[in-house]
Simulated assay, not measured.
Amino acid sequence: MPWALALPPVAVLGLFFLYPLGLVVRESLGGDGGTTTAAYGQVFAQDAFRDALGNTVLIAVGATAGALVLGFVLALVIAFVPFPGGRAVGRFVDVFLSFPSFLITLALLFVYGRAGMANGLWTDVTGDASGPFDFLHTRWGVLLAEVTYFTPFVMRPLLAAFSQLETAQLEVAASLGAKAPRIVRRVILPEALPALAAGGSLVLVMCLNEFGIVLFTGAKDVTTLPVLIYSRAILDGDWTAACVVAVVNIALSGGLYALYRTVLTRGGLRRARA
């Protein structure tokens, strides 16, 4: 019977995902002491929560926008501008996706940290006691690290979409006198929009839940929702508040994913009708 075949994977999903998630929700509602939303009111009233929510949304939106722009430009160059080693660079994008986020942040610290290469070069040339680069411990440093790390997640679907683009369309547009910017705007960009939507939505959700980059930059004044969850649970031992923030974070991620699926479905319907 069909339901019997579906029972094992559903049971595994419920045991290892839905059950722990249910425990988090139950703890946020008072745990075994009864169902109450008092903890939500207390957490929502805290300045720390509002600051963390604002930082999370601003950094996620900014990093997604930066990754979309940078990823689109780099994917264009790799796909349509012949240069030695272009294929190797395209393969490196796949390898880059397997790197942990803290590794990229650590590399940026070696370059732009207070004792990094950029400041060392500055002090060697000018003789100053310290260099001018001290932004990695701020919101801008977190933003740079996230754009650097998540750009390949935008490039991968774009490169796949560009590989299926008919070069004849580009040749016809060029033969009719269209310049490169017009070809990109009128021919390439419309074909790339689904890939941009897929990559951008993935990056946005991942940025909302990013923890390692904020931790490794040492940005003490930048608290995001994942960092606040860690702080409440591990440092303060307030598991109820931590679960409340976790539920908010899950709701944000789930809502964005649902919105992405809705937009993608409507876009597919429009294309099918066309």
Rank of each mutant, 00 (worst) to 15 (best):
Y149S: 10
V154I: 15
R156Y: 03
G120I: 00
V95H: 07
F99V: 14
T126I: 03
L144F: 01
L159A: 13
G120L: 01
E171W: 09
A107S: 13
V111S: 14
L159G: 14
S130D: 09
F135T: 08
F135R: 12
L103T: 09
Q169I: 00
E166V: 00
T126Y: 05
T151F: 05
F110I: 03
W122N: 11
G127Y: 07
E166K: 09
F110E: 07
S163F: 00
V147G: 05
F102W: 12
R114P: 00
Q164K: 11
D94R: 11
S98T: 04
G116I: 02
F133E: 11
L144I: 10
T167F: 00
F153V: 04
H137T: 13
T123G: 08
A161W: 01
L159F: 05
V172G: 07
L103S: 14
P100W: 02
L109N: 12
R139Y: 04
D124A: 15
G120P: 02
V93M: 04
S101L: 03
F92I: 05
I104K: 14
R156P: 00
G113N: 04
Q164F: 01
D124V: 03
V125S: 08
V142H: 11
T167E: 06
L106G: 15
Q164Y: 00
V147Y: 02
D134R: 15
L136W: 03
N119T: 00
V172N: 04
S163M: 03
G127E: 10
S163A: 15
P157F: 07
L159Q: 12
T138M: 02
A168H: 09
F102I: 13
L108H: 04
F99A: 15
D134E: 10
F153C: 10
G116L: 00
G113K: 05
A129K: 14
F162G: 07
L106C: 02
G127A: 04
L143T: 03
D124Q: 15
T151R: 12
G131R: 14
L109Y: 05
Q169E: 08
A129W: 08
S101D: 03
P132E: 05
T126V: 07
L144C: 04
N119C: 01
G127M: 10
D134T: 09
